[in-house]
Simulated assay, not measured.
Amino acid sequence: MLDIFNKEILNQLKESLNKMKNPIKIITFVEPGKPLCDEVVTMMMQLSTLNNKIKFIEYDLIKDSIFAKKYRIDKVPGTTILVNDKPTGVKFYGIPSGHEINSLLFALLESSGMTTPLENKLVDAIKQIDKKVNIKVFVSLQCPHCPKAVMVAYKIALLNENIDAEMIQSNLYSDLSNEFGINSVPRIFFNDKDDLLGAQPIEMFIKKLKKLKF
């Protein structure tokens, strides 16, 4: 399997990942022969060589179903991040390459404790959500606006353990994209219902979260 990143890109990624504060684990679930599984494993293995604070573990979705259930992964390739061996709610379905490498770097740094500042009132509003919420962000790897939406969703998930946030590569999961009527990206769904279109600010995400009916 060819490397995903060339030497120049690896050096740039290493410089960014040097900002990590605490150890994390990257967990990727695969199935033999399924599209992009090998590529995602190669990508995460390469990343894990760039900083000793990153540990990478590969699981088989079927054979290791007990872990898939534990980490709430239901598709391949599916990747999540653990902090202190606990799931963060951050998930990547597909390969976070192209513009989505920015979302991946953001998730790794934020999970490690290198957090970006956020107004206290916004943090408080996110932490007040006391029901289980799933945020799906459908993306295209060629979309320059998609990472902003993904990063907002990840920021929210990292602040509240009740919330999962998923990047979904729309062209890889075409049946799911058709089910949700995806014809432009980024498209964001909250518990598979209320949606936003475009790279909206975090305030709009919070507004949707507050209006959810459970």
Results as ranks from 00 to 15, higher is better:
L2G: 03
L2C: 04
I4H: 04
F5E: 01
N6Y: 07
N6S: 07
K7P: 05
E8H: 03
I9M: 14
I9W: 07
N11W: 04
Q12L: 13
Q12S: 12
L13F: 10
L13R: 09
L13E: 01
K14T: 09
L17F: 10
N18T: 09
N18M: 12
K25E: 02
K25R: 03
I26Y: 00
T28N: 15
T28D: 09
F29V: 05
F29S: 05
P32C: 02
L36C: 01
D38V: 13
D38L: 08
D38M: 10
E39D: 08
V41S: 05
T42R: 14
T42A: 13
T42C: 06
T42W: 04
T42N: 13
M44S: 05
M44K: 12
M44A: 05
Q46V: 00
L47K: 07
S48E: 10
S48T: 05
S48C: 06
N51C: 06
N52R: 11
N52F: 04
D60T: 06
L61C: 04
K63C: 03
S65F: 14
I66G: 05
F67M: 15
F67L: 14
K70C: 10
K70N: 04
K70Y: 07
Y71W: 03
I73W: 05
K75C: 09
G78D: 11
T79M: 09
T80M: 08
I81M: 08
V83Q: 14
D85M: 01
V90S: 12
I95M: 13
I95K: 13
N102L: 09
L105H: 03
L105R: 00
L109D: 12
S111M: 11
S111H: 12
G113T: 00
M114L: 12
T115Q: 15
T115L: 07
L118S: 03
N120R: 14
N120W: 01
K121L: 12
L122Y: 15
L122F: 15
L122H: 15
D124K: 15
A125H: 01
K127M: 06
I129D: 02
I129W: 01
I129G: 02
D130C: 01
D130M: 06
D130L: 03
K131F: 11
N134L: 13
N134V: 14
I135K: 08
V139D: 07
S140M: 07
L141T: 15
P144K: 09
P144T: 14
P144S: 11
K148V: 12
V150K: 04
M151I: 00
M151E: 00
V152Y: 08
V152W: 03
L158Q: 06
N162E: 02
I163M: 00
I163W: 00
D164S: 11
D164I: 11
D164M: 10
D164K: 07
A165D: 01
A165Y: 01
A165H: 00
E166F: 10
E166I: 00
M167H: 11
M167R: 02
I168C: 01
Q169W: 15
Q169L: 14
N171G: 03
Y173P: 07
S174E: 13
F180Q: 06
I182E: 10
V185G: 04
I188T: 14
I188L: 10
I188A: 05
I188E: 03
F190S: 06
F190I: 03
N191E: 06
N191G: 12
K193V: 08
K193G: 06
D195Q: 13
L197Y: 06
I202L: 12
I202H: 06
I206S: 05
K207M: 13
K210C: 02
K210N: 10
